[in-house]
Design a protein around this nucleic acid. Structure first.
Length: 882
RNA sequence: GGCCGUGUAGCUCAGUGGGAGAGCCCCAGUCUUACACACUGGUUGUCGUAGGUUCAAAUCCUACCGCGGUCACCA
């Protein structure tokens, strides 16, 4: 056989792009056409507002690992990629662009604006998909979807109309969260609360009959123009007598009543609250209880409207606040003002302070949907990894409120509702309406609002598969298997997908939800543009390669824990990839002139059996790890196996055979090396996809591509526990002697005579057949196995270990005092451990209560320590006699 | 304030009831014909604090402290 050349240096950029292209061309990402149980993952669609960051890289790396593993088990495996139109966020991006040109969206008009937004979408979309290709995501591009695609839009309409028909969607005038900057209503969970420094003003409201005044406390004096009452607690003795009286509202000519409502806290402030139903949720509820008509004082842009005195009109609320307070002060109504920190809602997209704002909006009645979602969870149909997120999920569903789904935006799914301008009829329809069904008028106007982005995202697991059509894809790949996402969108997205699926598909959208941690910098801070501490995934790919990135992230991603990284972190994956590359190069170099032979059980040495055993265990660990979402365990298993066992011990051992004169032995060892290498590529492919594919193409014993090869299943004929124990015994001998040489200050290159005295027959037999190997590992002049303890070792330096003793013959005078000291320290330590054992074993409670295995183990330990103490004592004596 | 997470080697973290681990860092040595992105050997710990359960606790329970997250608020 001719040797296969591998480039001397591992350079991922040489082959990653080429291999990705080939995978796509060969249709390797398309689901296999067989009757196996399908495995489906829908990618959380990135927003087309920007490009992918490290969090996306982590998320998609983990999905890719699962997908590749499942694909290799032979199941029809589908990973659906796609992007989200991200209503508010994308519209904001475009509006910012316009602002730079001195334009507002109104200047363009709806049609032109939407056109321009599509261009932004196309731009980011092409970058995002290119990024996914660069990191090696093995998603099926033929199934790529966008939330504004025709099919998905159809699904949105179907869901809207169906829910309306089922009485689960309604329209009405309510107090909603309103972002003056984005100019739209928001859902409750789109509001982020943060503590802001504010003030608490105490304002005097005079009685209408002139009999003095009362004092209310407020953080927002400007809303007083919307006051319709002042409330006190009915149990507040101080104020019982004044309930029902009228007070004069300062700065206006209105009079408002004093009412009693139990929501007012007696202790807080003055115990009196001004009631402004149109601008505060509590007041809204209170107003409804008392049949008070709300007064709206704001324009949609957050400025004060015509209801307010002229001098305040047009001022932004915050500005008006201080002007009003100033005016109150001048007129003697302001009693006091003090600093006060309080929680204020902010828009999750632009961080502007959100105003409670009265307006007509569309809502989804959530309780009936939430109950189904809770039941599905209670019935064990969905599982979160880590499990703790189930609390978050259930407590949110238990306290769910109706979902405001209308947005006063232009970018998104237009609400499928038309109003007849002649008869006022409202038509909710799956198809566009041009004629009023009631009066026949053609003067119809579609609702100008669009739907919340999440109203399309929550259909993602089935809308991407063709719903509402009954497509073969839908039949085959729904419900999907696993969802991998971040905890920040459990409310927005995960729970809503579950609700929508149960409602429209009658089943959960996925059974497993893996919640990833956050990617942070080494200081534990979130990566963000403003901090400038982000790491660009493409930069990592450029420097270290996609495999190094994926492997490193996976290795660091303990279940659901945050991942702290910097650019250097990826060296880890890079070093490992380099190691694999070089090990391969070494093996391929040794193929020159060799003939591959079939591997038969009869030709396996104990060393061979050991490495096959270790590899077999590794495959099992990886399978288990990936099936239970223990990604780091899987990464660690392949790292330990390939580097520590295969490279450090087996390949080193194989050199004895490779450099021998025995052609038959050389053929045999090369064949086994290749066998292990080929299988290792299959085990490692989910984690190091490009590298393993590149190597696989060079292996003479591999056929096809590793991406479509079978993941190694556990083989009982590769289970060699006994050999594993023997090799570990040998490793201990080797480490002991190597250590002794260093301790004694002996030059590593110096070859010495070594005698080994194993304590048991099996180890003796093993070592007898591996003398040449021991010589190599120990770099010894000669190795003698002296089980019968006949050799004279009185002049040799002793090394103690479990199950053996070794003796290193050193003729030179050596400084043994240091070694004696070390041994004595070790003796004390071992004696301490033995004392611990004795204490346990003499404890009746332990003997009676502990598991029998634990007692047995303790006895074994005791014997072991006793043996070690005995040996160490002997060795100290020997050294002292030098 | 409720709920959740977290506190283990200098750093980043694994480890869910029986002799404290990995990677990086550090120290000493080696360019040994795959790899110096390597090899060999070594050092490093009141497992946050205090109690409790148990024959046995880094691991389970309680309280407290530190850090982080999240939900909800009384103007």
């Amino acid at each position: 056989m001719k040797a296969v050349e591998l480039e001397k240096v591992y350079n991922p950029s040489d082959f990653e792009d080429r291999i990705y292209k080939q995978w796509v061309e060969d249709g390797n990402f398309c689901p296999a056409d067989n009757d196996g149980k399908p495995f489906t993952v829908v990618m959380p669609p990135p927003n087309v507002t920007g490009i992918l960051h490290m969090g996306h890289a982590l998320n998609n790396s983990l999905q890719d690992i699962i997908i590749r593993y499942q694909r290799m088990t032979g199941r029809p495996t589908l990973w659906v990629p796609g992007t989200d139109h991200a209503g508010i966020a994308t519209q904001n991006v475009v509006e910012r662009q316009l602002a730079k040109e001195g334009l507002r969206r109104q200047d363009l008009g709806r049609e032109k604006f939407v056109e321009r937004t599509w261009a932004v979408k196309e731009h980011h979309h092409s970058i995002i998909t290119e990024q996914l290709r660069k990191i090696g995501a093995s998603c099926d591009w033929q199934h790529e979807r966008f939330t504004l695609d025709e099919g998905l839009s159809k699904a949105v309409r179907e869901v809207f109309v169906s829910l309306y028909e089922r009485g689960l969607i309604y329209r009405g005038m309510y107090l909603v969260n309103y972002c003056p900057h984005c100019g739209t209503a928001l859902a409750d969970d789109e509001v982020e609360h943060q503590e802001d420094a504010g003030h608490l003003w105490e304002v005097n409201y005079p009685f209408a009959d002139g009999s003095g005044n009362i004092t209310v406390a407020t953080t927002r004096p400007e809303t007083m123009f919307g006051d319709v009452a002042v409330a006190v607690n009915p149990d507040d003795e101080r104020y019982k007598s004044i309930v029902g009286k009228m007070v004069k509202l300062p700065l206006t000519d209105r009079e408002i009543p004093i009412i009693a409502d139990s929501f007012v806290g007696i202790e807080f402030g003055t115990g009196m609250v001004k009631i402004t139903p149109a601008h505060d949720p509590n007041d809204w509820e209170c107003g409804k209880r008392h049949n008070l008509t709300p007064i709206n004082i704001l324009n949609p842009d957050g400025t004060l409207n015509n209801v307010c005195p002229e001098k305040f009109r047009g001022l932004p609320a915050e500005e008006a606040r201080f002007k009003v307070a100033e005016e109150l002060k001048e007129l003697g109504y302001l009693k006091s003002v003090k600093d006060y920190n309080h929680e204020v809602g902010h828009c999750y997209r632009c961080h502007t302070t959100v105003e409670p704002y009265m307006s007509e909006q569309w809502f989804v009645k959530m309780k009936p949907l939430a109950e189904k979602a809770l039941k599905a969870w209670r019935d064990g149909k969905i599982h979160f990894y880590p499990k703790r997120w189930e609390n978050t999920y259930s407590s949110w569903l238990e306290n769910i409120r109706d979902w405001c789904i209308s947005r006063q935006l232009w970018w998104g799914h237009r609400i499928p509702v038309w109003y007849c301008e002649d008869c006022g009829e409202m038509i909710v329809s799956r198809t566009d309406v041009t004629v009023c069904p009631k009066c026949g008028s053609k003067h119809l106007k579609q609702d100008p609002d669009v739907l919340d982005t999440w109203f399309s995202s929550w259909l993602w697991p089935f809308s991407t598969l063709g719903w509402p059509e009954k497509t073969p894809d839908l039949k085959k790949f729904f419900p999907t298997s696993t969802l991998v996402t971040g905890y920040d969108i459990i409310f927005f997205w995960v729970s809503r997908m579950i609700m929508a699926s149960l409602e429209f598909m009658g089943d959960v959208p996925f059974s497993d939800i893996y919640i990833t941690g956050l990617v942070r910098d080494k200081l534990g801070r979130k990566m963000s543009k403003s901090l400038g501490n982000g790491i660009d995934p493409l930069e990592v790919v450029k420097i270290y390669g996609a495999d190094a990135m994926k492997f490193t992230l996976c290795y660091l991603a303990a279940q659901g824990q945050d991942v702290l990284i910097d650019m250097d972190s990826f060296k880890m994956g890079s070093r490992f990839a380099n190691k694999i590359w070089n090990a391969t190069r070494f093996i391929l170099m040794n193929l020159e002139g060799r003939n591959l032979v079939d591997i038969k059980p009869s030709m396996l040495t104990d060393m061979d059996k050991w490495i096959l055993h270790s590899m077999n265990e590794c495959a099992k660990k990886v399978s288990t790890a990936l099936e239970t979402y223990r990604f780091n365990d899987g990464a660690q298993a392949i790292y330990d196996f390939f580097w520590n066992d295969f490279c450090d011990w087996y390949v080193e051992a194989a050199k004895v055979s490779l450099y021998s004169d025995n052609a038959e032995e050389q053929d045999r060892i090369v064949s086994i090396l290749l066998e292990v290498l080929e299988t290792s590529m299959r085990i490692m492919h989910p984690f190091l996809s490009f590298l393993t594919e590149e190597i696989y193409s060079k292996l003479p014993n591999a056929c096809g591509k590793v991406i479509s090869a079978h993941f190694p299943e556990y083989r009982s004929d590769y289970c060699f526990e006994k050999q594993a124990a023997l090799v570990s015994g040998m490793q201990e001998i080797v480490r002991g002697v190597r250590n002794a040489k260093v301790q004694l200050g002996i030059d590593a290159s110096r070859k010495l005579r070594i005698t080994v005295r194993p304590d048991n027959d099996e180890l003796t037999a093993f070592l007898d057949t591996h003398i040449a190997l021991l010589k190599t590992f120990l770099n010894a002049e000669s190795v003698e196995i002296d089980a019968l303890k006949k050799s004279d070792v009185s002049s040799a330096f002793p090394v103690a270990g479990q199950g053996f003793e070794s003796f290193v013959f050193v003729r030179d005078a050596i400084d043994v005092d240091k070694e004696i000291k070390r041994l004595e320290e070790e003796l004390v330590k071992t004696q301490g451990l033995l004392a611990g054992c004795d204490k346990k074993l003499s404890n009746e409670q332990f003997i009676n209560n502990a598991k029998p295995e634990a007692v047995e183990k303790e006895k074994d330990k005791k014997a072991e320590f006793e043996e070690k103490i005995e040996k160490t004592k002997n060795h100290i004596a020997t050294l002292k006699s030098f």
